[in-house]
C-alpha cells in the first residue's frame, strides 16, 4: 500500500513533480507511466526519502518511509541498477543488504538463484556486470527481505526478452499473493502487459489514472471482420456503441474482451481485434511524449 498526497518537488523554477496524488493498492500492479523527464524517478526517490519533498507527503504501508523500523523487510526498492559499488562482487553486494536487514546469509544464495545469476557471475565485481546483470542484482536486493511492497524504477531496462517475461511473471505472482507493486516505465506497451492500474504522468503532473480496463476502454477497441454489418448489429444489441472505421472495421467503445465475446456469440469471424489506436490513452501518451520530446520537430 502506497499513498502519495499532493506531492510537489521543485528544482529552482522547475516543478519536476507537481501536486501528484495517487495510491498503489495491495494485490495489484500499478504502472507509473510517463515520458522521459516526466518526474517518475523523482517521485519514487521522494517516496523512499532520498529526495526531500518540497511539499506534500508519501506513505508506505501507512507510515512515512523513514519511520519504517527495517525498511528492507517491508519495502523492496530498485531505483537505479547502476548505483552499486563497482569494486564489490555481486554476492558481497547482496550480503551487505542481507546483513543490514538482519537476514541469514542463506538468503543470498536463494536470491542469486531466483534472479538467475550463476555462482561465477556472483563472484565477479559489479564493475564488470552487464546492464541486465546489474538489473538482476538490483531486483535481488529489492526482493531479499521478502517485502510486501515493491517500488521499481524501470526494472525491465536492459533485460533480455526472457528476462522481461520472467520479471512480468514474478511481479504478477507477487501481486497475486497480496503484495503491492509500483513500477515505472516510459513504454506504454511494456506496462500495458503487466499493470492492473495505471498512473500517467507528464511534465510533473498526473494526466490520467485508473484501472487499465477503464483507461483502455475509453480508448475503444478496433475490430475488423469480413462480416462487418452483422458484427455492428450484434454489438448494438449488447448496448456497445461502435462506429465504422474504414470499410471493414469498427471502433467499439468496449474492451476487446467483450467485443470478442459478442463476436463469438454472434458467430462472426474476426480478422483483427485490438485496442484502438489514435484515441484515448495511447494518443494522450504520444502527445505527452511529443510535447517533451527531444526530437521536437518529429511531432
Amino acid at each position: 500500500m502506497i499513498d502519495v498526497t499532493a506531492l510537489t518537488r521543485t528544482y529552482g523554477g522547475l516543478r519536476a513533480v507537481d501536486d501528484v496524488t495517487f495510491s498503489a493498492q495491495p494485490g495489484r500492479v500499478t504502472g507509473f507511466l510517463g515520458p522521459n523527464g516526466a518526474g517518475k524517478s523523482t517521485t519514487m526517490r521522494v517516496m523512499v526519502g532520498l529526495t526531500p519533498a518540497t511539499s506534500g507527503s508519501a506513505t508506505v504501508l501507512g507510515r512515512k518511509y523513514a519511520d519504517l523500523p527495517n525498511p528492507g523487510r517491508e519495502v523492496g526498492v530498485l531505483l537505479d541498477a547502476s548505483a552499486q559499488h563497482a569494486g564489490r562482487t555481486g554476492r558481497e553486494t547482496l550480503r551487505v543488504a542481507a546483513r543490514t536487514m538482519g537476514l541469514p546469509m542463506s538468503r543470498v544464495d536463494e536470491l542469486l538463484d531466483l534472479v538467475s545469476l550463476t555462482g561465477t557471475e556472483a563472484e565477479r565485481r559489479v564493475k564488470n556486470y552487464s546492464l541486465g546483470m546489474r538489473q538482476r542484482l538490483g531486483i535481488a536486493t529489492a526482493l531479499i527481505g521478502d517485502p510486501e511492497v515493491l517500488i521499481l524504477d524501470e526494472p525491465a531496462n536492459g533485460l533480455d526478452p526472457a528476462g522481461i517475461r520472467w520479471m512480468r511473471d514474478l511481479l504478477r505472482g507477487f501481486a497475486n499473493k497480496g503484495g503491492t507493486v509500483l513500477l515505472s516505465s516510459h513504454l506504454l506497451h511494456e506496462i500495458e502487459v503487466i499493470a492492473d492500474d495505471l498512473v500517467v504522468i507528464g511534465q510533473g503532473r498526473i494526466v490520467a489514472q485508473g484501472t487499465k480496463a477503464e483507461l483502455l476502454a475509453s480508448a475503444g477497441t478496433l475490430v475488423r471482420s469480413t462480416a462487418i454489418e452483422e458484427l455492428a448489429q450484434a454489438l448494438e444489441q449488447r448496448g456497445v456503441t461502435a462506429v465504422a472505421s474504414g470499410r471493414d472495421a469498427l471502433r467499439a467503445e468496449a474492451e476487446a474482451d467483450l467485443v470478442g465475446q459478442v463476436a463469438l456469440a454472434a458467430g462472426v469471424p474476426l480478422t483483427e481485434l485490438r485496442a484502438a489506436d489514435g484515441a484515448g490513452l495511447e494518443e494522450m501518451f504520444l502527445e505527452l511524449t511529443a510535447d517533451t520530446s527531444r526530437e521536437g520537430a518529429a511531432a
Binding site: 519504517l68 528492507g72 564489490r88 543490514t100 536486493t141
Partner: peptide
C-alpha cells in the same frame, strides 16, 4: 565518499533511511 562517488548510497540510505 564511496556512498556518493560509487552511488551505493542509494541502497544504503534506502535500507537505513537515517
Amino acid at each position: 565518499t564511496s556512498e556518493w562517488s560509487q552511488r551505493s548510497g542509494l541502497t544504503t540510505f534506502t535500507l537505513v533511511p537515517h
